[in-house]
Design a protein around this nucleic acid. Structure first.
Length: 548
RNA sequence: GCACCCGUAGCUCAACUGGAUAGAGCGUCAGCCUCCGAAGCUGAAGGUUUCGGGUUCAAAUCCCGACGGGUGUACCA
């Protein structure tokens, strides 16, 4: 509709020999303002030299409302032009939902663009903690959104199983292992304090007895710890339905010489220099407050260098869109990585870095305290145990990434109307229940084609029905806009509105009815709603129960 | 100190990216089940969008400056 109208208006503007401007349609907030609105008259007013309402008038006079299936075109306020769809247009469009069914909402606007989405990327030094949940879920939902909009998505996990942190892990396990034999020793200064270290140590004890008690070489501890942690992480991701296509080991950047290459190129371009035994990156050239070390005097690179090399590889692997998801605590790395990649000759406008703000947990009134450095870590697994996978998905994605997220565990656990997940799932289950009831009465609803041919769509005229259909028809565009703006939270807002609009319809219009024709029509409305909720939930990776 | 993010109803957050009367949920108060799922619906109260300037037909949204909160600011990742 927008496209049709857009072309129509463009022609009118040309006929009136008005200047060419972008014609943008908005969905008015207030229902009285119709279904679509445009501000072109106000934009044109100055150039044309008339007041906005006059401009609007000249345009509206030329609009052929009937052929566009508009029931009204009005000028309002300072000069908005408001359009309202004809009901038969709405109903006609709604058939499309039934035809497309599972595919309603999908589009090809991504044009199969090769897209790399990297997220989670936690190093195997411990289980995922509850704060990781936001990133885990954001990435998954964004990946789904990108796929629904026709991107060719590779889901990637980047990890590092070498370096300080892993040595630290090995040392920590070793200490716990020795303590398991009653030896007196303390964790290293920044050692890992979590209980899981004791579990790992205990497993090693079971396998190896005391044979490693005095080993100088900690490789075994490191390997064992790495595998143990990775297994744990993958199990947690699995519980949330999160799967990665590629696990990219930072180590390959060394073994394949990529790190070296980047240093050389930097030095050639005078973007890196030696000083105090270290190699420095000229970050100041790109606006940073000071230059950064990229290779320590020990010969080990800092994280910036492999990060730059890694992003270069993403480009070299042919990705046209590169999406990274980081928590706000990693924000410092981003400018240097981007400027580095840019200096290597790649267009960083194709890199989208999503930074989400931190998460805090409350349990009703009580603040849940958490600290990485002590044993008091609330793992993501424990959170899933507590509130379930569906609530984890919904809650982590329901706020915009730019705002701090408060996760109320008590609310997420609550099986009542207070809980937004239940509100949505309830709508779905309620529809399923109606459809079951209808099926028993001899109105099977499992076949879209049959529904299409049986339904007399001209009977769908009640205000609540039209409102609901209009809402449902917004879905494809909403999915696109969520995907392109990387704002998955808007999907939860939308689905809540769908559920709300449905409940209102249900309350006002009786579905099960003596008038069989009418009943059929309303059953179809129910089914359409069910399709949209189910598709939306699929993107959110939230289940849609038939009963609850 | 500097950089980035945020500041909207008592609380948690929206606001289609500059539009019309700033909206939801929770909480509070008042209604609605003989009938398809009341895990639902309807209504009321609640706001100087932290404050002060600016930009324009139009600002919660953009710019400048305060104030308040968060996150960073390593030869840790």
């Amino acid at each position: 509709m927008k496209e049709l109208l857009h072309n129509h208006l463009q022609k009118i503007l040309a006929d009136l020999s008005y200047p060419i401007v972008d014609i943008i349609f908005d969905r008015p907030k207030v229902e009285a303002h119709g279904d679509l609105t445009t501000n072109i008259a106000m934009i044109l007013a100055k150039a044309v030299g008339k007041n906005p309402r006059q401009v609007a008038q000249s345009i509206v006079e030329k609009i052929d409302a009937k052929s566009l299936m508009l029931s009204s075109v009005e000028i309002a306020g300072p000069g908005f032009i408001n359009f309202r769809y004809a009901e038969n247009y709405v109903v006609e469009q709604a058939k499309e939902i039934l035809r497309l069914n599972d595919n309603f909402g999908k589009s090809e606007i991504g044009k199969k663009k090769k897209t790399n989405l990297e997220w989670v990327s936690a190093n195997p030094t411990g289980p995922l903690h509850s704060g990781h949940g936001r990133q885990v879920i954001l990435g998954q939902v964004i990946a789904n959104l990108l796929e629904w909009t026709g991107h060719d998505v590779t889901r990637e996990y980047y990890f590092n199983n070498a370096g300080n942190q892993m040595r630290n892990l090995a040392e920590s396990i070793y200490v716990r292992y020795r303590q398991g034999f009653g030896e007196q020793c303390d964790l290293p200064e920044n050692g890992y304090q979590g209980e899981y270290i004791k579990e790992i140590a205990h497993e090693i004890k079971n396998e190896k007895g005391n044979s490693l008690l005095h080993s100088e070489d900690k490789t075994y501890f490191q390997k064992f710890g790495e595998e143990w942690c990775f297994k744990k992480i993958k199990e947690t991701l699995n519980r949330l339905g999160v799967h990665h296509d590629v696990f990219y080991n930072e180590d390959t950047l060394y073994t394949e010489g990529k790190i070296k290459e980047v240093i050389e190129i930097f030095k050639q371009k005078d973007l890196a220099y030696d000083q105090d035994g270290a190699v420095w990156y000229r970050a100041t050239k790109f606006g940073a407050d000071k230059d950064r070390v990229i290779v320590k005097s020990t010969g080990e690179p800092t994280y910036r260098l492999p990060d730059i090399a890694y992003h270069r590889e993403k480009f070299r692997r042919g990705f046209e869109l590169i999406v990274d998801i980081f928590g706000a605590d990693h924000i410092a790395t981003i400018p240097d990585v981007l400027s580095g990649v840019n200096a290597l000759g790649y267009d960083t406008s194709n890199v989208k870095v999503i930074i989400h703000q931190m998460v805090s947990f409350v349990n009703g009134e009580e603040v849940v305290k958490m600290s990485k450095r002590n044993a008091n870590v609330y793992t993501l697994d424990e959170l899933i145990d507590e509130v379930g996978s569906d609530a984890v998905h919904y809650f982590f994605v329901m706020r915009s990434v730019g705002t701090h997220l408060e996760f109320d565990i008590a609310l997420a656990k609550e099986q009542s109307d207070k809980n937004p997940v239940y509100y949505l799932q309830y709508a779905h289950a309620r529809i399923a229940s109606i459809l079951r009831f209808a099926a028993e009465e001899g109105f099977p609803v499992n076949d879209s084609d049959a529904m299409l041919s049986r339904t007399d769509f001209s009977l769908i005229i009640a205000k609540e029905e039209i409102d609901l259909l209009k809402k449902l028809l917004e879905f494809p565009e909403l999915v696109q806009s969520c995907a392109l703006s990387f704002e998955p939270h808007r999907l939860t807002t939308y689905l809540r509105e769908v559920a709300e609009t449905f409940h209102r319809f249900y309350h006002e219009q009786r579905v099960i009815n003596d008038d069989k024709k009418l009943m059929q029509a309303r059953l179809t409305v129910c089914l359409l709603t069910k399709i949209v909720i189910a598709n939306g939930c699929k993107i959110l990776s939230v289940s849609c129960p038939e009963k609850m």
